[in-house]
Design a protein around this nucleic acid. Structure first.
Lengths: 354, 354
DNA sequence: GGCGGACCCGGAACCGGTTCCATCGGCAAC
DNA sequence: GTTGCCGATGGAACCGGTTCCGGGTCCGCC
């Protein structure tokens, strides 16, 4: 493997000049620069990032922490992050975080503690104060997408508003017995995504005068039902079967906390022989790429765009403190939630008259 | 940030001894080792991987090249890889490879060419000879899962056999007009996964005396139909609508090259008002976690296990040439394809008598 | 008792870049 | 004609580890 010394010798200059010519920093005569670049490409020289980061302290590598790879939302965010980083010449090291257990702390205390990533992007994780403190102590910029925890940079949608919007959509259609399939932790972690959406649901139904029913087997008639489940399709299916099993207690509408859950509910309804949207209305959130296939009404967000933006924010935080170009450059839209959009399809309609 | 020199000073030893004590290589008195370890944890010392890899040439980091994040198969493989690497103390750098274009060559010629990964695991990519040559020139071990290309280590299932098995399952049930939804490149790239499965289909139908029909609009009656489409659910849906649109030309069974395609076909059939499996049988391949939900007959493989194994192979290749412990240790099951299993569910049955 | 070897440790070189500092030539301003 | 500054370049220190080499001690064995 050729080193920069080889390039320098071939071009007849010193290592210092070769480094300057190739990196573009400092003053080098145009002619010299060309000679060096020619020499470099001639012997197939490629700089060692390890050596560079050792002295500069910058690795051109950012860490991404994600709880599931195989959920559409997370995959889409990852996709947006990856493309943007690649274009910027950055590497992406992936940490698939177990929800809890010793593996989880190992990620934070060992992997992320090493000087291998310049910044960390955390997707959909409820960070503990200890975890945040550890990152801050090492002065690593952290950008969060969704999730919760007291962190400086966070990209998120208005989850409370999303819960309220989905619920009022169903209310406006005339539904009076509505179930919400919330993510796990909706009640135990009020600040989490699941918790915020559930809060939006509960406040809206309450304002509409619907009583909160204990569970899905509560006596029929108007009311709000809250059920917690994993945000995936199988859990949505199982919860759907449970929820829709008894005609007497059946809600006329379900607000699922994610599109994948909604898909599961739809299949459960079909399995039970219900006709949609006559017997049941379903609304989800995410804007899943399969939503159209299932004719699902949903509240769209743009995870890919969120990923792209998270990278931009992280890179800016890096450039700012390192001494990039101009002013500290405050983030343009700090605090403002990312946009969402209600897309009405065939899965929601007025309830059939009883 | 404390460096190893600080640890050494605190423990009253030299940098060399501190390094030996912490890494476990070389002889260090038990007492000295304890002193060093104590000093290290006292000041929160964490070794810099950059500095270490600079001198050893090993980065404890492996690169993973993947064409899609958001396809179940790839996500599941990635999951298996990630867990295994984490347990081994390795990092994982992710490269989301565009199917073609300048971005693709940039991944190989720039990102992977740098000395940042010890080995590369490539999932479901048809590698060109040039790309393989580039990796070999840099003496980087390459392990492939699926895909094609002349590479030393490859983990794969018997795709040709899978195609044949799925097809004969349908034939044995009595179907005589069968369509295969193949992946793109099935005809242009015979060595690809799509190509092999399609070949298995064609040979089996041919052996059964079914003529190959030009396209789905060919006259009714016995025959084999081959259609190429993207392996995702939306494409399966679209192809399904096309394929099943005309009752006169409709096949009685569809073999989809992936479960996600099969899901799409199932939804298309439902949309067209067909009843399954009375009007249509569908079989997929993968063993998708949602297969049970769709009651889909499929040929299961275990992507997570494949990912785990790929890491093991890669690590062994690294350990062997680097001078690990014992013998060169040939891979236990080199060449042998990974196991698959036919799981029959409700989506396949005898065709209704006409 | 002498000697070989295992064990333990410190000094110093080294990996491959980047950057500080010094030197030098040329040119404009006085 | 100096002075002073700027652009261009080379020498050398440095980042933070690992490892080679050599010296010293202690033990066992002939």
């Amino acid at each position: 493997m050729p080193a920069i010394g080889d390039v320098a010798r071939l071009a007849g200059v010193s290592k210092a000049t070769a480094s300057r010519a190739l990196s573009g920093r400092g003053h080098v005569a145009a002619d010299t620069r060309r000679r060096v670049q020619l020499a470099a490409s001639e012997i197939g020289y490629i700089a060692s990032p390890d050596a560079a980061s050792l002295v500069t302290g910058r690795t051109k590598n950012i860490g991404v922490v994600i709880p599931f790879v195989n959920r559409w939302f997370f995959g889409a965010v990852l996709d947006g992050i990856e493309r943007t980083l690649l274009a910027a010449g950055y590497d992406l090291t992936l940490y698939n975080l177990p929800v809890s257990g010793p593996e989880r702390s190992r990620v934070f205390e060992f992997f992320l503690a090493r000087k291998r990533v310049d910044a960390v992007i955390v997707i959909g994780v409820d960070l503990t104060p200890g975890e945040i403190g550890g990152l801050e102590r090492r002065e690593k910029p952290v950008v969060c997408i969704g999730g919760s925890g007291e962190v400086t940079a966070r990209l998120t949608i208005d989850d409370h508003g999303v819960g309220a919007l989905a619920t009022s959509h169903l209310l406006h259609l005339g539904h009076t017995r509505i179930a919400h399939l919330a993510g796990v932790g909706a009640t135990s972690q009020p600040a989490s995504v699941a918790g915020l959406r559930a809060a939006g649901f509960l406040e809206t139904t309450d304002a509409a005068g619907l009583p909160l029913l204990a569970d899905e087997s509560s006596a029929g008639g108007p009311g709000a039902i809250l059920v917690e489940a994993d945000m995936g399709m199988p859990a949505g299916f199982a919860a759907g079967l449970q929820l829709l099993g008894h005609p007497a207690h059946r809600p006329t509408a379900v607000f699922a906390a994610s599109d994948e859950m909604a898909f599961g509910v739809i299949r459960a309804a079909e399995r039970l022989g219900l006709s949609m949207p006559r017997d049941l209305s379903v609304i989800g959130v995410d804007g899943h790429e399969h939503a159209e296939l299932f004719d699902l009404t949903t509240i769209e967000q743009s995870p890919t765009e969120q990923g792209r933006l998270a990278v931009e924010v992280a890179l800016r935080m890096l450039g700012g403190e390192g001494g990039g170009g101009g002013a500290p450059d405050p983030l343009p839209d700090s605090g403002a939630p990312m946009p969402t959009r209600l897309v009405v399809r065939g899965s929601t309609a007025r309830p059939a008259v009883a």
